[in-house]
Write a protein that binds this DNA or RNA. Sequence first.
RNA 1: GGGGGAGUGUCCCGAGCGGCAAAGGGGGCGGACUGUAAAUCCGCUGGCUAUGCCUUCGUAGGUUCGAGUCCUACCUCCCCCA
Length: 419
Amino acid sequence: MSSFKSDFLRTLSERGFIHQISDEQGLDALFAKETVTAYIGFDPTAPSLHAGGLIQIMMLHWLQKTGHRAVSLMGGGTGMVGDPSFKDDARQLMTVETIEANIASIKRVFSNYLTYGEGPTDARMINNADWLRELNYLEFLRDVGRHFSVNRMLSFDSVKTRLDREQSLSFLEFNYMILQAYDFVELAKRYDVRLQMGGSDQWGNIVNGIDLGHRMGTKQLYALTSPLLTTASGAKMGKSVNGAVWLNADMLGPYEFWQYWRNTEDADVERFLKLYTTLPMDEIARLAQEAKGSAINEVKKLLATEITALLHGRAAAEAAAETARKTFEEGGIAADLPTVEVPAAELAGGIGVLAAFAEKTGLVASNGEARRQVKGGGLKVNDATVTDDKAVLSERDLTPEGVIKLSLGKKKHVLLKPV
RNA sequence: GGGGGAGUGUCCCGAGCGGCAAAGGGGGCGGACUGUAAAUCCGCUGGCUAUGCCUUCGUAGGUUCGAGUCCUACCUCCCCCA
């Protein structure tokens, strides 16, 4: 590990957040000397960030913790264009309404990690729509566009994939990197931002901003990127058993969020403790030491609880851990497993198993899939494997707790509750 | 403007002499083994009121008993020439 003098870079470095820095010594000196303002941009492509974005939020978190000023930039303007970096094909264009709604929804998560306000080390939430949407095309071309060389832009890896595959890269998308570069300069002017951070896929875009800053007379700007997140076996981060690992609670409950981290691969445990929890380094080292063989499961639970506590609060995290304990270790029924309510009268009339799994709980996508899962032995009702796809559920199937437990595989459970 | 090529299962990549619900991967899901891990092996991976019916190969027509496959027009993309 390189020996950084500043708290911020040392912390990021020892926790494994750093992939590339534009000028290590220069940036380190800056952080050691003064309060630095740094930002990360978030694109409003969905109503919630997912686990992949967590690493960026954690970087801002440490930035604030070490006494600097964090800026979370919402891409209300750039979202109208769409980032083509390393994408295979063009994104669907989003309407302004969708973008605004997504931003409003995404924002909710940030205050769990950062303290916002007007004070010197309070974080700020800024939307680049503030300046991008008012740009005058001709002025922009003359002031900013003239500093960009298309020859150079074409050489970036981020667009090469698209070009190599002979897929179209629209002029609209091609402009994304110019807008992002301009953002950096604008933030430098307005808020004295000196550093932009992001995933390693953003390197080209960030460096463009630094160059533009040179030409437009800002102070020296810096870039810092985090490694691309994959699990030890190479899968992309942020995909869970049933889709993306959303951060917003209304899209993914604390229990399911906890489960995602509980299922971390052995080889990732220590890395994730460093990246996603705020546990001190010496404690992480101690935990990693302990985690030999199946004892690692205890560490995984702690990992899951710590990460969930940061996002959803300590109480919700512990409730999730308890639900998991009851469900997996006692084989019992925990009241706060995901629950679907059905009218008591409907249950009295009988509900086909296939319909219960497909339509009621959505554990499987269709009756056909439910049928296939029955064939493969993947569905269970109250822990008994379903063998007959014509079986019908009724009040007789209610457990003493007054629910019916439906399971897909060993890990996904939903309770059916008559009301 | 002229010439040449491409678009396949709504996750992706990709084969496809006129009989095709469409090869093969990857990914995903389930099963076995385990530790709610990884690796490995096996099964599944259009929909439905289901020995049948419906919808799928860029879009719309046409030829044919029958079209992903042949013809026409259009859309989108790539390459070459102007």
